[in-house]
Design a binder for these strands. Structure first.
Lengths: 249, 249
DNA sequence: CTGAATATGATTATTTTTGATTGAATTTGC
DNA sequence: GCAAATTCAATCAAAAATAATCATATTCAG
């Protein structure tokens, strides 16, 4: 049996069950435990699985903001996102009617919010809980909940947004491009974001520098529609296209 | 059995029942009490559960489903509520459009749900999360979030309900009385419950025996409007007033 | 075909986990 | 409030799993 085949089989078994033992793999693939251990070491280093004593467990797919508090520390762009969130939080003033989009950067934003004389509305389940626990006047959108990201999407959500008039909205994005504007991979999330940006007096797009010049399938707003808050801008032309605030780590 | 599998099983058991003993875990996982204690110590340090003398309890501080701040874990009527929840869960059939009210008994109900060919909609933040994590088609009501109980209430919620036609609704209540019907202490929660009961084809009221003959400020439905699921009925006259299902512990 | 490079399986010393034991701590019954 | 019963943490030896090592088998280029 080819090494690559074993790798594939191991990962296949792990995707079906959450954990496998070395003995099980050895029996299933008809090979020695030594070989299985070598395979597991390799796949662990590759980050394809988590080796544990006695076998291996599947890597839990990153699920939006529901990631466990342990792994979140070392996530990509942590410091940049924190700086962006800290600055964005200062933009909320008395009487504001603020929308907070689901997503990791906006989730961090909630940590830095301080204005209790504003009303907050969100489409993130985790976001709503954090807001309410921090004592803010919190509302939540209604509609279908998307698994994993735990974001509220769908037509109910969009039609609810149509009836609301936000003074400020904080949204995340996956891509920022001069031609395609702000883009996201999911159709229904894009629909919600589009509705938000259209109904908000001021839309702030929170994005670290890795988001620039990337295009995803669904455009939800022209680049001029949102003020970008980021840690660094890779290209002069973006500065001419829209309002951009650069923050320091 | 892999250590990680044991961790997983322990947490799984805890999510279904709010408390487990070392002896139960030892028997269920076919391992020594020493090992179980070590596991509990680890999971406790990780903050995944709360270790108590004799076993462990689930962590759900501020999930909003606990009514009292010093929530009695081995809470009153635990077994009764579990029996009620277990029976209620069997009432969901294919194609049902089910509303699940915020509250402790309805929260437990989610543990026992099994039908994935139904659509679930709830006004409890914690409930929505549990539903989505268990893989159900989940929707959430929109509106203002009440601090502490983390229930969605208010006019937005009520007007959303008006547009929906539930086949079945599971609601909690604080009081059941022949004259005052179903009652609750809060005005806005009462408004939501009233709308629910009016828009559901079948309304099931989940209530342990302590709820009978108690009256709270806000009536949300006549006693005939809901089928009561309870552990024991203290008075013959209730049986004549409406449909009641008695379940055994 | 040869020889180097790589992969495999067995062996062994080491590390980790487990279960039993025991004295201490906590709860329960009276 | 005290004694009995239960549960706990600490300890240690046994069991299980691992990494390291080495001899053998396989592959592949020349």
């Amino acid at each position: 049996m080819l090494t690559q085949e074993r790798y594939h089989s191991i990962l296949q078994m792990l995707s079906e069950r959450d954990a496998v033992t070395v003995a099980e793999l050895s029996a299933a693939l008809d090979t020695s435990e030594s070989t299985i251990r070598r395979d597991l070491n390799y796949l662990d280093e590759m980050g394809k699985l988590k080796k544990v004593f006695g076998g291996a467990t599947a890597i839990q797919s990153s699920t939006g903001v529901t990631e466990s508090p342990f792994e979140s520390r070392e996530s990509e762009m942590f410091d940049e996102k924190t700086a962006i969130a800290r600055y964005a939080a200062t933009l909320v003033h008395d009487g504001d009617f603020v929308f907070i989009d689901a997503g990791t950067t906006t989730y961090r934003l909630i940590d830095f919010l301080s204005n209790k004389n504003a009303t907050y509305i969100t489409n993130g389940i985790a976001h709503s809980r954090k807001l309410i626990q921090r004592g803010f006047d919190t509302h939540i959108l209604g509609g279908k909940i998307k698994p994993f990201t735990e974001a509220i999407v769908g037509t109910t959500a969009v039609s609810l947004i149509q009836r609301l008039n936000f003074t400020k909205a904080f949204v995340g994005t996956n891509g920022i491009d001069l031609a395609s504007g702000f883009t996201t991979p999911e159709l229904d999330e894009g629909a919600v974001k589009e509705a938000i940006v259209n109904k908000a007096y001021l839309s702030f797009v929170l994005a670290d520098n890795t988001k620039f010049r990337r295009v995803f399938p669904v455009s939800f707003a022209d680049i001029r529609k949102g003020c970008i808050i980021t840690d660094s801008v890779p290209d002069e032309r973006f500065l001419q296209a829209t309002v951009i605030k650069e923050v320091n780590k």
